[in-house]
Amino acid sequence: MAQRIGVYPGTFDPITLGHMDIIRRGAKLVDRLVIGVTTNPSKSPMFTVEERMDMVRREVATIGGDIQVVSFNSLLMDFAERQGASMIVRGLRAVADFEYEYQMAGMNQQLNDQIETVFLMADVSLQPIASRLVKEIAIYGGNISRFVSAAVEAEVVDRVNTIGRKGD
C-alpha cells in the first residue's frame, strides 16, 4: 500500500499553539506529514526561513510519528507533488479563513486534482490565535504566553527587544 503523505504549509512566523494543534491532529491522518515552511510575499516575517524551520523542528520533536520540516518557495501544488503528497492539510479558525481556503482549494484542485485538501477545525480555545496578532501583541509589550510555547515566547520577546518595542 502506498504511503499517505500530507503537506501542512505555512509561514509559521512564529509557530503558535494553533499550528501545533493542527500538526498533532494532521499527523494522525497520514503516514508522513511534511511541514512546508514558506515565505509569503504579502507578509513581512519576523524570523528568517531558517529560524522558523528550527523553531518548527524543535516544537514538533515531541509529537512522534514521521514529521519532516522542509522549506519551499514555489507554488504549493508543485511542492506537494515533489513531496509525493496526496493531501494538503489546512487549519480553519473562522468563516473568513474558510472563504479564503475554499478559494485556494478550488484553484489548487484545478492545478492537480489528485491532491485533496483536508480542512481541520482549530480547537475552540485556539481559534483566535494568528501569528500576525501574536507578533503585534509582542511588539506592543503584551503577554503572548497563552498563544505560543514558552520557548517560542522567549524567541519572539528576544526578537522584539532586538528590533525595539512600539509605544515606549
Score class of each variant (00 low, 15 high):
residue 80 A to D: 11
residue 96 A to S: 15
residue 4 R to K: 15
residue 44 S to D: 10
residue 58 R to V: 10
residue 29 L to S: 01
residue 121 M to T: 10
residue 133 L to I: 12
residue 160 V to Q: 13
residue 104 M to L: 15
residue 143 N to S: 08
residue 162 T to E: 14
residue 38 T to N: 12
residue 164 G to L: 05
residue 104 M to N: 05
residue 71 S to R: 15
residue 21 D to C: 03
residue 124 V to G: 03
residue 114 Q to V: 00
residue 33 L to Y: 06
residue 163 I to W: 05
residue 41 P to H: 00
residue 101 E to Y: 06
residue 90 R to W: 02
residue 145 S to C: 05
residue 116 E to L: 12
residue 10 G to T: 12
residue 67 I to G: 01
residue 148 V to M: 03
residue 62 T to R: 15
residue 167 G to C: 10
residue 80 A to R: 08
residue 69 V to H: 01
residue 131 S to C: 11
residue 168 D to R: 15
residue 19 H to W: 08
residue 62 T to F: 07
residue 126 L to E: 10
residue 151 A to Q: 14
residue 165 R to Y: 05
residue 76 L to T: 09
residue 4 R to N: 07
residue 86 S to K: 05
residue 35 I to F: 00
residue 63 I to D: 05
residue 55 M to Q: 06
residue 22 I to L: 12
residue 86 S to G: 13
residue 100 Y to Q: 07
residue 58 R to C: 07
residue 4 R to P: 06
residue 81 E to F: 06
residue 112 N to Y: 07
residue 87 M to F: 00
residue 8 Y to A: 03
residue 167 G to Q: 12
residue 31 D to Y: 04
residue 125 S to I: 03
residue 108 N to P: 12
residue 6 G to N: 09
residue 143 N to C: 03
residue 111 L to Q: 03
residue 152 V to W: 12
residue 43 K to I: 11
residue 34 V to L: 08
residue 63 I to L: 13
residue 120 L to G: 00
residue 79 F to H: 02
residue 66 D to H: 07
residue 59 E to K: 04
residue 104 M to K: 04
residue 74 S to F: 03
residue 128 P to N: 10
residue 82 R to F: 10
residue 159 R to W: 05
residue 157 V to A: 04
residue 74 S to H: 04
residue 38 T to R: 06
residue 13 D to H: 06
residue 26 G to I: 02
residue 72 F to Y: 15
residue 30 V to A: 04
residue 114 Q to Y: 10
residue 47 F to W: 04
residue 89 V to E: 01
residue 71 S to H: 12
residue 158 D to E: 15
residue 20 M to W: 01
residue 163 I to V: 15
residue 93 R to V: 01
residue 131 S to W: 04
residue 78 D to W: 00
residue 164 G to F: 01
residue 131 S to Y: 05
residue 31 D to M: 03
residue 66 D to W: 02
residue 155 E to A: 15
residue 84 G to P: 11
residue 106 G to K: 06
residue 75 L to W: 00
residue 45 P to R: 06
residue 59 E to F: 03
residue 130 A to C: 00
residue 46 M to Y: 13
residue 100 Y to F: 14
residue 168 D to F: 13
residue 125 S to P: 03
residue 157 V to D: 02
residue 91 G to K: 11
residue 52 R to D: 08
residue 77 M to E: 07
residue 81 E to S: 07
residue 157 V to K: 14
residue 5 I to L: 09
residue 161 N to F: 05
residue 110 Q to E: 02
residue 149 S to L: 12
residue 16 T to N: 01
residue 37 V to S: 11
residue 25 R to L: 02
residue 60 V to G: 01
residue 40 N to V: 02
residue 136 E to H: 13
residue 40 N to A: 11
residue 72 F to N: 09
residue 91 G to D: 07
residue 68 Q to S: 13
residue 157 V to G: 06
residue 122 A to Y: 04
residue 23 I to L: 04
residue 111 L to M: 14
residue 68 Q to P: 00
residue 131 S to N: 10
residue 27 A to V: 14
residue 12 F to A: 04
residue 37 V to I: 12
residue 91 G to Q: 08
residue 48 T to N: 11
residue 94 A to R: 06
residue 165 R to E: 01
residue 53 M to P: 05
residue 102 Y to I: 04
residue 146 R to A: 14
residue 120 L to P: 08
residue 59 E to I: 05
residue 141 G to W: 01
residue 152 V to F: 09
residue 15 I to K: 02
residue 80 A to Y: 13
residue 31 D to E: 10
residue 141 G to H: 01
residue 155 E to G: 08
residue 73 N to Y: 11
residue 3 Q to D: 13
residue 152 V to K: 14
residue 130 A to V: 12
residue 156 V to G: 09
residue 94 A to S: 15
residue 41 P to D: 00
residue 165 R to H: 14
